[in-house]
Design a protein around this nucleic acid. Structure first.
Lengths: 337, 337
DNA sequence: CTGTTAGCGCATTCAA
DNA sequence: TTGAATGCGCTAACAG
């Protein structure tokens, strides 16, 4: 039942010329007779000829495909990043193979293997929260598959990356809250693996010091980003004799759970307690009581920049002049709502 | 700088046997000597041999890749669908190429072309709201690329599809509101292209009749799904002398805008006005005043079922017994919150 | 049980 | 300006 698609061979036969002539004609090779060229193109159009990309991929050792590995697509942060990636990729005639790790390291490894098998030309990755070692990415060097990490980047020197520096916004966040009159400012941090550089927490501590507020270790709690972890973290803070009046949250998804939970515990949000968060996803605006401020991390730009960097790495000409490892750092912004 | 990966040729040379013997050994072909087989496998392991998939794709005329075309990934509805698709695909050793049409027909066409070029084995699609003709999908028949539509399916008979019948839930939704005491029940419908079968509206009208409520055309308004369209539709209803006390909304994304807008207009939600919606995305639970009920459309299952159907179409053995066009219809469920 | 051969569709080097 | 020949890595039909 196989349909037989036209090939250059077919065209060559019909025109009684050689395969290579057809190939050249279709590629507008300089040394080709106008007559034959036109004839070839005409017949090609008639036959509805289209080159078999799999053959070309095979021959060129390129698939014009980039793989994207990220924790999940459910979070608007990552779907925005995908938009930036897709845009840049499509502009370069590349196509995007996306796969979700669901924050599972084993899955992440499988995806890498699968993408390697499929011979993607390069990979963009935002690592899972359980990824501490990146051997599965490192091995790709043996296959000439460059990797650019974005947003969730591993804390090692010898990788390419695009990320957002959250330090200054973290300072601003505390400043903002202090200016609003808050003195007991808590902080709910994420898993340590995503926090290695600790920009958020360092900013938090530095800003407290700057504002002459004594840091209180009881005010810093952790979540594993699960709903239980998120609400549990809030509960811990609410159990303190001296409750915080403001809480800085690891990101907007933590914020969703925490704000929801605070409502259920009958707290008057923005009165009893105020929240600041990270990510600034548009969705939050639908909440009746969104965080009073959120740190914009520019997912679209991160995705786009990471893709551009990957293309630079993929370009054999430009490759020479590149520094061994490029680490692009965007500046986050505190957005007051 | 090209790294040279080991090939079966290389293995053959080193072992002084033929290429085909190596190939067979690696595939556990039955007629192969145990000694040679082990030797081959041993060397293959040592050399870190991995078959070049692009060569195999080329030879087998298969890429083990399925393309997914959908309006966007931002909506949790579609990212859930992707999860169902990814799961099923990965279980079958397929990989998923996803692309967003952003509800733009031209883009959708480009994606189809691009996927065709990349020789995906099959395509899953949820069409854009501007897609009225599906020639760009139809032509894929000439390339033996089967297409299965899901959720947003074109209203033509000769396609494979998986969708969710919303009629009964629509009736239930009205019944539910009537039972709650509502008599003026409005309906905000989506673009006509996504509404061809009109299951929502038919259910609405039938249920009104069943409950002896006279339908009022002024209570049925439309949105193009943009934020302005959504809020404008509500405004139209609020401008009526006799305002509705309940509104059924095309989907949860319309609901987000409408509920937000209603709040801004100082309406007491669930008191002045109540909402019922479609999609039942988990995100809505974070709202302080989510719709009182929502119709579950099972995106994950739709994705999974559509993928299974696609694999059936891809399977040359099973293909024989298939009906020419399969249209799987799931039953939606009204979920009371 | 193993080797030989051909070919998938195309690009490309070498000859003419 | 064109053609012939080669090979990319692998599978499989055929032959021994």
């Amino acid at each position: 039942m196989e349909k037989k698609l036209p090939t250059i061979k077919e065209i060559a036969k019909r025109l009684n010329i050689s395969i290579s002539t057809v190939s050249r004609a279709l590629h507008d090779h300089h040394s080709i007779g106008l007559r034959t060229k036109l004839a070839v193109k005409k017949l090609a159009a008639e036959l509805n000829y289209e080159p078999n990309q799999t053959a070309i991929f095979f021959k060129q050792r390129k698939t014009f495909t980039i793989g994207v590995i990220l924790p999940n697509l459910r979070e608007e942060f990552f779907s925005s990043a995908i938009n930036g990636i897709e845009k840049t990729a499509l502009d370069n005639n590349y196509i995007v193979l996306t796969s979700q790790s669901h924050d599972d390291l084993e899955r992440e490894k499988n995806i890498v293997e699968s993408m390697k098998k499929h011979r993607v030309d390069g990979i963009l990755a935002s690592i899972s929260k359980n990824t501490t070692r990146i051997d599965h990415f490192e091995q790709l060097k043996n296959y000439d598959i460059p990797v650019v990490f974005f947003d969730r980047v591993p804390d090692v020197p010898d990788v390419h990356s695009v990320s957002c520096n959250l330090y200054h916004s973290s300072v601003e966040a505390v400043d903002f809250l202090v200016k609003k009159g808050h003195k007991r400012i808590a902080y709910i941090q994420g898993p340590s693996t995503l926090n290695i550089k600790n920009e958020r927490l360092n900013g938090y501590y530095d800003a407290l010091a700057k504002n002459s507020i004594k840091a209180d270790d009881a005010l810093v709690v952790s979540t594993d980003l699960s709903t239980d972890g998120n609400t549990g973290a809030l509960d811990k803070l609410l159990a303190l004799k001296k409750r915080p009046t403001a809480v800085i949250l690891f990101n907007d998804y933590v914020a969703l759970d925490v704000i929801h939970h605070a409502r259920q515990r009958k707290l008057a949000i923005n009165k009893d307690i105020s929240f600041v968060s990270y990510a600034n996803i548009p969705f939050m605006h639908y909440l009746e009581t969104p965080p009073v401020a959120s740190v914009e991390q520019f997912p679209y730009e991160q995705g786009a920049r990471a893709t551009e960097l990957l293309f630079k790495l993929l370009d054999p000409n430009a490759k020479q002049g590149l520094p061994p490892y490029e680490n692009i750092v965007l500046k986050s912004e505190l957005i007051i709502h």
